[in-house]
Design a protein around this nucleic acid. Structure first.
Lengths: 236, 236
DNA sequence: TATTCAAGAAGAAGTACTACTTAATCGAGT
DNA sequence: ACTCGATTAAGTAGTACTTCTTCTTGAATA
């Protein structure tokens, strides 16, 4: 994990591309990169290779490394997500990610109801209980913690690796919401009830019911965000 | 595009990992890779770097390159998807991808209804018409072509880059379905009607209606697949 | 004279190889 | 059991060479 020069240069250059400092169409020469980041040829080349596989750049002989259009990027790469969340594009990124999670989670709840192991069903119920308790205690930080754990477990229990991979995204969206002061001072009772409903439905193996409850959750979240967008117009 | 040695070695090694020939936990030494693929140190290193960013491997000093658990892979990388579709894991991969698309597309239809440009709305309607015509003519291959174009446009029009990126996945799923002889000999009239409904809803900017119609489409597809899974039990 | 096409020169990425650095593991010896 | 040194393989640096693409030059032709 986290190697030396390679990681540093990758982060620096990747972030620069992700946040738009380097506009699409920009041409970088390999030698130029070595100077700018004080990196050896080896490091510079490997970084470019990685960016290339993320579809952030393309390399052409006799031309150089070309920054691609955002539409061509692999937007699911954890690194790119990180760069976008850390930069000025954070609001737009959070919107995009929230749309993604609200699309996935109801479906994930359905498959969790169909495929979760007995142990997972039990743990989900337990998490629901703890969620309700911390909500009653108005303890926002532990509420967030259990909320993240709840959604994480659900996505994992869906048995679909592509769903499971979105755990981090969901965690980021949930954290971003509370962190931004966008959450009500205390968790909404309806939301808590819906979480319990999801857990119960999954425990009972009722796919439709689990999906419906989870859809209600994300719709509620969506409406909150929309309300907020009206108050403070974001970047489109 | 498509460089020389690098691409070849990457494909060979990546596919070997993706299809399970190299089990998780397997340790590869850099030198070993050079021999096995007849590649230079440079190429071998860059390939490993790329696999590392895809989370397919991790490298540790004094140990080597370690193949990671499938659960840790970045399952959204187009290359990995390709490798899984081309290997013996194809059926399982198609199932996973189909679940993903059926989760996303209704949501994408909603946002398309809200955000598509006038031009996109028009083109979607036109594609719907052509879809209906080729269905009536029982021309399966052009039907598939328009079907792919329809879903592609819808995802793009959603305005969410993460949705848009799934165009290729949807194309693959749709193609895989017809190619596998899993489609009825002629497109189902209901499906065609639903596509027209989606196009109409998007044109009218009716988000709920567009989402509902698209959900009906993917549910129908899901039930078809489920029916098939009963007939010929697939790999879980 | 202007235009098109072709051959060649130039330039940058791609590949190969060597030398050196760093850090993690293993083992010997206390 | 613990420390410390030797070993080993990845990480980094730098040089030399290859390949391919683009741009330029120039000649032939309309």
């Amino acid at each position: 994990m986290g190697n030396d020069r390679h990681e540093q240069v990758l982060d620096a250059l990747g972030a620069a591309i992700a946040n738009g400092s380097l506009e699409p169409g920009t041409v970088l020469r390999s030698e130029e990169l070595q100077e700018r980041f004080g990196a050896s040829r080896t490091v510079a080349r490997e970084v470019v290779r990685v960016l290339e596989t993320m579809q952030l750049t393309s390399s052409k002989r006799r031309v150089g490394v070309i920054v691609r259009e955002p539409g061509e990027w692999n937007h699911y790469d954890p690194r790119l997500i990180r760069w976008q969340l850390d930069g000025p594009t954070r609001p737009a990124a959070l919107t995009t990610l929230n749309e993604l999670r609200s699309a996935i989670e109801p479906c994930a709840a359905r498959y969790a109801a169909l495929r979760a192991t007995p142990e997972e069903r039990g743990r989900l119920g337990a998490l629901g209980e703890r969620l309700a308790r911390s909500a009653k205690a108005r303890d926002l930080s532990t509420f967030l913690e259990f909320d993240i754990a709840f959604h994480d477990l659900l996505l994992t229990a869906s048995g679909n690796p592509m769903f499971a991979q979105l755990s981090e995204v969901v965690a980021e969206v949930l954290t971003g919401r509370t962190g931004h002061g966008l959450m009500p001072p205390e968790p909404q009772p309806e939301a808590v009830a819906l979480h319990l409903e999801v857990a119960a439905a999954v425990a009972a193996g009722e796919a439709d019911r689990a999906e419906r409850a989870m859809r209600d959750i994300v719709v509620q979240a969506r409406d909150e965000i929309a309300l907020l967008a009206d108050a403070a117009p974001g970047v489109e």
